[in-house]
Design a protein around this nucleic acid. Sequence first.
DNA 1: CTGAAAGCGCTTACAG
DNA 2: CTGAAAGCGCTTACAG
Lengths: 354, 354
Amino acid sequence: MFSRKARLKDIAALAGVSIGTVDRVLHNRGQVAEKTQERILKIARELNYTPNIMARALKTRKGFNLVSLLPAPADENAFWLKHPEGIAKAMSELEQFPINLTQITFNFNSESDFQKKAKDLLKKPPDGIILAPLFRSQSIQFCSELKNKKIPFVFVDNYLTETNFLAYVGEDIFRSGRVAGQLAGLLTAADEDILIVNIAKNIRNMHHLNQRVKGFRSYFSGSDRMKSKIFILNIPDTKRKTVKEMTDKILSDHPCIKTIFVTGSKSFIIAEYIHSSGHKQMNIIGYDLIDKNVEYLRKGIIRFIIGQRPEEQTYRAVKKLFDYLSFNKLPEKMEYLPVDIVTSENVDFFINNI
Amino acid sequence: MFSRKARLKDIAALAGVSIGTVDRVLHNRGQVAEKTQERILKIARELNYTPNIMARALKTRKGFNLVSLLPAPADENAFWLKHPEGIAKAMSELEQFPINLTQITFNFNSESDFQKKAKDLLKKPPDGIILAPLFRSQSIQFCSELKNKKIPFVFVDNYLTETNFLAYVGEDIFRSGRVAGQLAGLLTAADEDILIVNIAKNIRNMHHLNQRVKGFRSYFSGSDRMKSKIFILNIPDTKRKTVKEMTDKILSDHPCIKTIFVTGSKSFIIAEYIHSSGHKQMNIIGYDLIDKNVEYLRKGIIRFIIGQRPEEQTYRAVKKLFDYLSFNKLPEKMEYLPVDIVTSENVDFFINNI
DNA sequence: CTGAAAGCGCTTACAG
DNA sequence: CTGAAAGCGCTTACAG
């Protein structure tokens, strides 16, 4: 009724040997007579043999220690709250296997903290690592150590081409900027202008955000669709006073600004200020479904949020690492998750939804 | 190093019985002395016992026959091309288990063909069914037979509340209409009007499409945000002549129409006509990432496509059925997939992406 | 170079 | 009411 899978036993019977010999051939271990070997391989091929992974897992029971090294979530970067959820989900699906995953976090603003945590974890080298490479040079150095120690690692959030990472799961950053550009274009009339706002304290953010700005601008470049002017504002911190002064200034200098693109997850700060300060209504576009952004999205103060599925990044990263370590399965190297366009009407589908 | 899971053996040792007895208690079979039973349950709880599903699967090796009963994809409903992909993906992930899934298709326009196929498949009753209930009364009847025969079934695409379905995976139809409404609102100025187009040959479509229309209208109702008028056009077939005549008429009667919402997957037909007929440019919003729609989306002739993840519907449906049959796991009953907002800039992420 | 045997954790039929 | 044993398909250490 069901076409049974071929077993070692079947191959052994046909080849007239024991299953031990078949196994030796199939795993390239031990010395087996050339002729026997050929015969066995031929039969295995004909029977389309693939091992029963249940039986293998049951027998082998090899455990792995994994480590995730991600920024600690804090008020100012609630974005990183979502990543542990994806890890938890993946681990619960893999509950049957003897895996440990230790979550290590580092201070979002401290390169030395990252270095310290990275160094510490290597004292007891894990079998695989999930890593958000926020700090470029420190990450490159760390990854070269991982390479020396032959520890595979998967990037989330961003990647560094100069390392030999096993895989990347995350946003196509440039592309997501283009999507934002398209949305801004839809919201902005020909006689209205656009403001890009970067809110960044540290250099990492700048790199990430600059990519989005590039993508955003690229959507408009070379086309005639854009008569609006595009201004840019870099706000160095999130103090209310700084935000107020800098925003007020640029908006009064350029009264035609109607659309504001906030390149990071802090659009709620701009939304809050615009909303409470008596400025005219703006079209605000931002990133990431953190609670405060969602709140302003529902209120209609933020128009669009672009989502990058942070939980799914870590979820898939864990799965990739597991498949690689357990089944030698080489994962798809670059896995760009969809750029989600989220509004007040479809936001419910995207939160608490992993 | 790894916290080992408790095994039957461990419980047996602590309870001073054999693993056979433990198993009998845990599966509520056979007669076990009250006292022994209590002791064993207590220990199992304390040890937080969960069975090792690898071992169980290896031993049990119970096979299932599943059937999917979905419309045959055809030129006129390319939407249904995607569903087999999700089935294929799920089956390849479950390759290790002795499962069969037979895909049965019926003619999208023929209720009698559905009835025939449904009847035929029951001659050899499967262990579970995945079903798209296009034809209401015929589906209800079929589902009541399934209930009698105790065959579990999962709906995709739509559901019928009066049946005892195991689960539904698909769109929140009303809600997706609301999302379309919001997008239309963004694209339409106060002095411009909106046209809703239903293209439907059969009654099923009408129900589905009407729900979307309701959602669409509900977005505008009771709010003052809408000064535009909303017209509706029902096109009974897709002949070029019919489309031309009816579209021309309504657009000349109402020259302020600027946005067209096509409630089904045939927005490419409207896009094609508008584009090639010398009408002024319209904002077109449609459904489903079938090739022709994607083509017009990329060209900028369709503005937004709303996606409902057809592959994921069947993928999850198969998984739910499998988990239910194999592990007695009751699935989440209503699983609404996200309403995806797709534009020319993020469409790449949503095609060939399962 | 090859075979026989133990055992992963579970389920099930049999014996008592 | 309970235990002992076989076996799912694989891997591995041992014996020859």
